[in-house]
């Protein structure tokens, strides 16, 4: 099965919405790759514009935020914007339904941890790497000085979608 994980970037926000992830003005694109420069372009963190072009952002393969991640519009462009930037794991304490479903439909991961576990991730100091053990449903977060492991629940259907490489491939073979 595909491996998931890598350098993580932490966004200290609830309710990151799809307009912040990819503004509607880019929805006229008909290729996914065209979305690449615009990921999180309109995000505010602590009320200030987020530097979406930073080195940490460029390197990250995992994004961590707080609750209700991906609320708002149904645009799968929000998921693709992460995907084409090589970010294929989002960790949050909860997701909006459509965003979560879009992630698994693309065969990539929306991992839910408990709010207190998310707090522990935010409390860790220094550059973080997160690796995912899908077989055991474990998330390992490491910094230079700390290591923490959390188990997460994964619905069996979502797991099948990831294994199949997404919902289209799954549905095509089955229905």
């Amino acid at each position: 099965m595909r491996q998931f994980g890598g350098p993580a970037i932490l966004l200290d926000r609830n309710d990151i919405n799809t307009d912040e992830i990819i503004p509607a003005k880019y929805l006229t694109e008909i290729t996914k790759i065209a979305l690449r420069p615009h990921l999180l372009e309109d995000l505010l963190v602590d009320g200030k514009p987020f530097d979406h072009e930073s080195e940490a952002m460029r390197k990250a393969k995992v994004v961590v935020a707080r609750e209700n991640f991906g609320c708002g519009s149904s645009r799968e462009h929000a998921v693709w914007a992460f995907e084409v930037n090589d970010k294929d794991v989002i960790v949050a304490s909860s997701f909006a339904r459509i965003f979560r479903q879009n992630m698994f439909n693309c065969g990539i991961l929306a991992v839910e941890l408990k709010p207190e576990e998310i707090d522990q991730l935010f409390a860790m100091k220094g550059d973080m790497t997160i690796s995912i053990n899908l077989e055991k449903s474990l998330l390992l977060a490491e910094t230079a000085s700390e290591k923490k492991e959390f188990s997460f629940a994964m619905n069996s259907f979502d797991r099948q979608l990831v294994e199949a490489g997404g919902w289209l491939a799954y549905a095509d073979s089955k229905y």
Partner: peptide, 20 residues
């Protein structure tokens, strides 16, 4: 229900969609 593009593709192509 609102859905994303992959669900839309499967909906158009196979006439099904998954929900909890």
């Amino acid at each position: 229900a609102g859905i994303g593009t992959t669900d839309l593709e499967v909906g158009m192509y196979k006439g099904v969609c998954s929900f909890r």
